[in-house]
Each structure stands twice: as C-alpha cells, then as structure tokens.
Design a protein around this nucleic acid. Structure first.
Length: 779
DNA sequence: ATGTTGCATGCTGAA
DNA sequence: TCAGCATGCAACATG
C-alpha cells in the first residue's frame, strides 16, 4: 500500500495520524480523509469549507440552503426535483414523511442525483455496504424510523427477482421493488406533491441490512387504497397483516400516483433517458388478504408506462392486482377461469356462498363484462373461478398461455381485465413460473371516450423494443413480430388500430371460431409457421392430401368419376405442395395458411364420417395409392421418387417429383372423362395398375422366398412399410379405410421415408393391389 | 347429441 | 406433506 494522503485535493495531507471515512467513491469504498477534512465532511461542511469558490453551487428549492451540486462529496445531500431545482435531504425527508400540504405545487418527485453511478455499481454486483453515503444513511434511517421498519417483514422481498432474468438484472429488479417500498414510504399522498426516492438515493447497505427486515407489502405500483399505504399507515404499523377486503380498503384509498410506481430502476432509466420506463416489473401485490402468500408468479407485470397511461386515461387509479397465465381450461369453451385462491381471496370480494357474486370487468377494448365470481368446495378448501369468461376471452383473442392481468379501477369497484399475449410456448411456461414472461400487455380501455386503449399488446411491443435494445435475453423469441412506436401516442395508436380491426368483439377478424379455438388451444396450434417437427406430426388422409394438389395455373381440369370417386383430371401434372382446401367445406379456401390448416383439420372429421358412410364401396385400386403416395410425398419431402426414377427425376414447378412423361398413378389418370372404368378397361391407368399388380405379386413371392433381401429394401422404406403393413394386416378394412391408413403420414424420419415412391412403391403397390384385388374379386 | 354444471381426481410445486 | 389448481367426468339441461 502506498502512502496515504487525504483525498481532499486541497489538503492532500499525508501525515495525518487519524483518518476518517469520507464520501462514497465511484470505484468503491470511501474517500480517505484526514481528521480535519473528515470532520468537515461529517459535519456536511466539506464543500462549504473547501469548495466554497468553485462552481456548481445551487440552492435548495425549499430552504435555499446552498449545496455544491456536481460534487461527489455532496452527491448524497440533495435530490433533484421533478420541476427543476434541487432539494436538500432535510427538505426531501420532510416532504416524504409529511404530505406536502403547504406547498402542493412543489413537487419533490425525486429522481436521482447519482443514479448512473450507483446503478452501475449495483449491476456489477459491487454493493459494499460501507459505500453508503452518509446522507443517504441518515435519510434512510429517518425513514425507517418513521416507518417503524422493524415491523416490516421481508416476505415480499423475495419476489424481487422475478422480473428479470439475468443475475445482474435481478439485482436491478430487486432494487426496484425495494425502492418502491421506499417510494411508497416516501411518497406524498397527492399527485402534485410526492416524493419518491430511487435506489440511488439509498445507501447500498440498505438492501442488505435494513432491507432485510423491510417489507414491501406496500408495493410497487400499487396505488390506491391497497397499494400505497400512507405515511400514517406506515407509522402506525398498519402495513402488514391488514387483511381487510380490498373493497373496504378502497374507501380510504389514496388516489393513485402513477409515477410513484416507478421503481428505482425505472427512475434510473427515466432519469437518464428522460422517458418513461418500459420496464416490465413484477409488482408485489397490493395490500390484501393473503397477499403475503401470493406467489410471485401472480404478481402483475406491467410497465410503468402502461400504468401511467392507464391511470391517466382513466383519470383514476388503476391498481394492478394480479395476473394469471391462462391454462387450456381457462381459455377453453367451458368459460371458467380458475383464479388463484390467494388472489381471489386477497383482491376480490369475499364470498360466502358458492354461487358467488357478479363482478364487472372492463376488458382491454373498453367492453364491459360481467363475470360470476364464485367458488367450488375443493378438498376442504375452495376453488375460485370466474364464470362466463368465454366471450371475453374470445373477444380478446386470448389463448392458453396468454396472461390476463386483473386490475382494479380506483375509485370504483370495477375491475380491469388486461392481458398479455404469449408469443410462444416458452413464454407460456416461463410466465407461469417466473416473472420474466414478457408478453405485452395490451389493454385498451375506453372510458372517457378519447382513449380507450390502455395496457395492451402494443405496450408490450414497446417494451420489447426497449428491452431488446438492452439485450434482454428473456425477450428473445417473444413477440419479435410485433413492432411498436416508441411513444405513448404510437402505442395508443397502435392499440386503437388493433381495436379498430376488431369491431366485433365476438368475432374478431382472423380469429378462429370458438370451437376451433377449443380444439386448438395453445400457442403452438396458433402458429402459422409449422416447424418441421410439427409438420412431421401432420397426418393426412389421401383426401386431405388431395388438397395439397392444385391444378396448374393455366389448366382447367376435367371431372372424372372412377368407381364413384370424382377426380380432377389434368392434362398436365398438378402443382404440388399448396393446400387449396378444394373441399374444405362451406368456407371454401382460405387465405391464410392457418385457416387452411384448420379447415383441413376440421374437414378431417367430416372425411372420416364420410368414409364410414362410404365403407363398403369399392374404389378404383390405383386411386388411393397414388394419392397416398402424393400425400406422403407432400409431407415427407424430397427424395420420394422411385429409385428407378429418382436419378432422372427433375423437380419441376408443375409436378415437383415427376418428370415429363411420368407414368405415375397420378400423372396417368385416365383421360376418358367418362367416369367409371370397366374391369376390362385397357386405358393406361388400368393397364398400369394391372401391370403393377402383377409386379407386386411377383415381388411378394420373391419376398417370401427371400425375406432378407427384401428387408434391406424395407429398411429404406420404413414409413411406407408401416402403411403397407397396416393395410395388409387390416385386410378387412374397406378400401377407403385402407387408403386412409395408408395415406396418413407418419412422423417418420425423412431419411427413412425418403424412399417412398410416388409412382410404384412396392409396399404401396402391395397395399393398393390388395385393395384392387379385393375390389376386382368383389366386383 | 351437445352443452352446462358441479364436483372429484391427480399432478405439481411450495412449505 | 399438503395445498392449489388443471382437468376429467358424471349428472343434468337444452336443442
């Protein structure tokens, strides 16, 4: 260690016998001061004594006490004020603990004077207790004393982390919530005069020592009655365990202070950026029964901006209560949304009868809904549900995995049902277990007519942008497809646009029917993009596979009936690979792939019924096999051509796997247009079928005699074999059934299925020939 | 046949 | 170990 000198640049005394701690250093630790300078610092007279003639002196806006701003020595001795100017800690403290009734116009909304520095230090994990500035310590102590902090449990502190994923961010979030506690403690009870401190105003050790006993029941973001206990409440120790009903408490509530919801983090960001925070914060629940037991997963995660906007637009307080990730059951047609018991008992009216009570909700579009809030007896307990939510869920186009945010309008007894869309299953999972679900809350609540849009998906997009910019990893994969303007107006505009596109809440454009939704709950089934894994799960009947075909653009098909089955006949091979939903039912073809897929799935049921009806009918033997092969080819991808043809096969746009002149069963569909082919028909199709049947029979005989030789081939045709075997085993099936079985595409490895031949796969031929054989014999 | 309702069951995560 | 909750299911209602 080198020679120690007083860190007062005007002193630099290196011979002091006694040393004192000075101000908190940016790099950590404390300034080392000689006894003389240290005493000056302790007496808050350092700048007065040593910096008297330097620039940067300002006066407290309240008491006019001169403070040397910009000096590290005095950084903890003042706060910046919202409306400009600074306030010395004494005045700040006074305004915190006593509602400013004498000077309501003087906002002491504090931002921070040293935000970035400390913040960065926190992020870095360098949080030495001893780094706390003296003024901060004093300030904190006063606050704590005033708030009887000893009675504050720390229960809520555990939820601090959830909102952010990385460790550093956890720290960040932790501070934010703690700060919120602070904010709440310090805040004024009116909009015009409130004072909030942010993390940087706190000594670092606060988070480790004093905060340990601190409770953040007073939550963040909470506003009203339940959220923000007044200083009086704090002093009286009524913060904790006041399990009075929210409604009861509401009567004594304070107007919500939107800005007070800013957390330390938020404040930091805002201070630094001059803009409203987009941080999505897991807000500890407001005061309410059992709030202490509320799992953090239910903490409402709502950005400050959203909350501000909400409150501003509503001209009232919106109190985020809790949120819940919708389960399939919640989002299903049953119309019952299971409420977390703790949340229900904490924030919703107490109900003694199972029938419950109706509760009025405003959804994000401003629509009013009335849900029955009730419970069921369940294991000597209760299970709380909201009944009749289906229309609302539909209106908001919510699905399993999305998050609904329950808020309350204050004053008033109405609830606000916000939501946050889940972008994918990851979100769904995470959202249920941690706070880093980062969907966007999209809420449009039209109350006063001007702006009905409140929290909404759009705001989530906003968040996305801001956070993605920060490289928040947990946002990856979340709503990347969403874009949002950066400002509130954009946000609202977007929300309104969204609203405008959904004039009919019960039938939102692009929304699937209730039935479809019921059967396709969850993000995965809603995805337009079907990854390969999912695609492999797709199983098509030959009829459905038919939908994968469409005529060449310039070709008009002839209608051919073969064995009571109607075919489209093309002079040229059909284009392959596009779902056209040619027989998709009343709606016909759809524009979007998802709708088409849903139509496809929907019609599958009809197809099966049809097959049952048609059971027993004979079918032209080549027909299913060819289509099966097509179906297989459609799903299984490349290299499906016959080995004999694969070498020369060239993918064309008209018929990707069939070269010109291909004689596959599809390409050679009879051109007679006369319908049913007689058994003696010698058309190309029938001749081919017959020829292949003979080939098949020969191959079978050969297989029986040389099973091993065929096994090799089978190994390369696993998928087709499965189908073929199934067909053979189920010889009693009707041709249609056989075709169905054969046509269903197994989720096989592409490599293994790559040998399926559109033209004359032996096993398929086997199958089809079986069918054909039976058919011929039956006829 | 389909939808609704009330409850039971079993899994999961928290204590 | 147990409470909470997602979901199944039977009884009932409705078309």
């Amino acid at each position: 260690m080198g020679i120690e000198i007083c860190m007062n640049s005007l002193c630099k005394d290196g011979s002091a016998s006694e040393w004192k701690k000075g101000w908190l250093l940016i790099s950590g630790g404390f300034a080392r001061l000689c006894n003389k300078c240290g005493l000056a610092y302790e007496n808050s007279a350092f700048c007065d004594k040593f910096h008297r003639h330097e620039a940067g002196w300002r006066e407290c806006s309240n008491c006019n006490k001169p403070i040397h701003c910009g000096c590290i020595v005095s950084r903890s001795l003042f706060e910046y004020l919202d409306f400009g100017g600074i306030g010395c800690v004494t005045c700040v403290k006074a305004s915190q603990l006593c509602p400013d009734t004498e000077n309501p116009n003087r906002s002491v909304q504090s931002t921070k004077n040293n935000a970035s520095g400390w913040y960065a230090e926190h992020i870095d994990g360098r949080l030495p207790m001893e780094r706390a500035g003296k003024g901060n310590l004093m300030q904190l102590c006063r606050i704590v004393e005033a708030g009887e902090s000893s009675s504050w449990p720390q229960a809520q502190r555990n939820g601090k982390v959830s909102c952010i994923g990385s460790s550093s961010q956890e720290v960040k979030c932790r501070f934010s919530e703690e700060d919120t506690g602070f904010l709440n403690v310090m805040k004024h009870s009116s909009h015009s005069s409130k004072f909030t401190l942010t993390e940087n105003d706190r000594p670092t050790w606060e988070s480790k020592s004093i905060h340990e006993p601190l409770s953040l029941n007073i939550s963040l973001g909470s506003s009203s009655r339940n959220f923000v206990p007044s200083a009086t409440e704090i002093v009286e120790g009524r913060l904790e365990g006041k399990a009075s009903s929210p409604f009861q408490q509401g009567k004594k509530s304070h107007p919500m202070l939107p800005k007070q919801t800013k957390t330390g983090v938020t404040m930091n960001l805002e201070t630094n950026k001059g803009m409203t925070s987009h941080e999505r914060i897991a807000r500890p629940p407001p005061d309410g029964k059992g709030k202490n037991q509320l799992l953090s997963r239910y903490w409402p995660r709502i950005t400050d901006q959203e909350l501000e906007q909400l409150s501003g637009d509503l001209k009232s307080t919106v109190v985020p209560l809790f949120e819940k990730v919708l389960s399939p059951s919640d989002a299903g047609r049953i119309g019952r949304l299971v409420l977390p018991k703790a949340c229900a008992e904490a924030f919703l009216p107490h109900i003694s009868q199972s029938e419950g009570v109706p509760l009025e909700f405003l959804d994000s579009k401003g629509d009013e809904w009335t849900f029955q809030f009730r419970f069921w007896p369940n294991n000597n307990s209760r299970m709380y549900v909201l009944e009749g939510v289906t229309p609302c869920i539909q209106s908001l186009q919510l699905n399993a995995g999305d998050t609904v945010i329950f808020s309350r309008i204050d004053p008033g007894e109405k609830f606000v049902l916000g939501f946050r869309k889940a972008s994918n299953s990851i979100d769904t999972q995470d959202a249920s277990t941690s706070a880093h679900s980062n969907g966007i809350s999209t809420k449009n609540t039209n109350f006063s007519g001007a702006t009905k849009n409140l929290l909404s998906v759009c705001s989530y997009r906003d968040l996305l942008q801001s956070r993605k910019g920060n490289g928040e990893p947990y946002l990856n994969g979340h709503l990347e497809h969403l874009r949002l303007g950066t400002g509130t107006s954009d946000w609202l505009q977007t929300a309104r646009c969204e609203e405008g596109t959904n004039k009919d809440p019960l039938q939102p454009p692009g929304s699937v029917s209730e039935k479809k939704r019921t059967h396709n709950i969850g993000p995965k089934t809603k995805r337009l993009l079907i990854p390969s894994e999912d695609a492999k799960e797709l199983r098509l009947t030959w009829e459905e596979a038919q939908d994968l075909l469409c005529p060449p653009p310039s070709v008009k098909p002839n209608i051919v009936t073969i064995e009571d089955q109607v075919f489209e006949e093309y002079d040229e091979p059909p284009v392959f690979g596009k779902i056209t939903i040619t027989n998709a039912g009343p709606s016909g073809s759809s524009d979007s792939a998802s709708e088409q897929l849903e139509n496809l799935l929907r019609t599958r049921k009809d197809s099966k019924k049809r097959k049952i009806v048609e059971k027993g009918k004979t079918i032209q033997e080549h027909k299913p096999s060819g289509l099966e092969a097509l179906a297989n080819a459609a799903v299984l991808g490349d290299n499906l051509a016959d080995p004999d043809e694969s070498s020369s096969a060239e993918v064309t746009t008209k018929h990707p796997r069939h070269r010109p002149g291909c004689t596959c069963i599809v390409c050679i569909q009879p051109a007679s247009g006369q319908g049913r082919h007689p058994p003696t028909c010698t058309c190309l199709a029938c001749e081919t079928v017959k020829r292949r049947f003979k080939t098949l029979m020969m191959r079978r005989k050969k297989q029986q005699s040389e099973p091993e030789a065929v096994d090799d081939q089978i190994d390369h045709m696993e998928e087709a074999d499965t189908n073929g075997d199934a067909s053979r085993e189920d010889a009693s099936h009707s041709p249609d059934e056989v075709s169905v079985n054969g046509g269903q595409l197994e989720a096989s490895e592409p490599s293994g299925a790559g040998q399926i031949d559109l033209n004359c796969h032996p096993n398929h031929e086997d199958m089809e020939m079986d069918t054909y054989n039976r058919t011929e014999h039956e006829s």
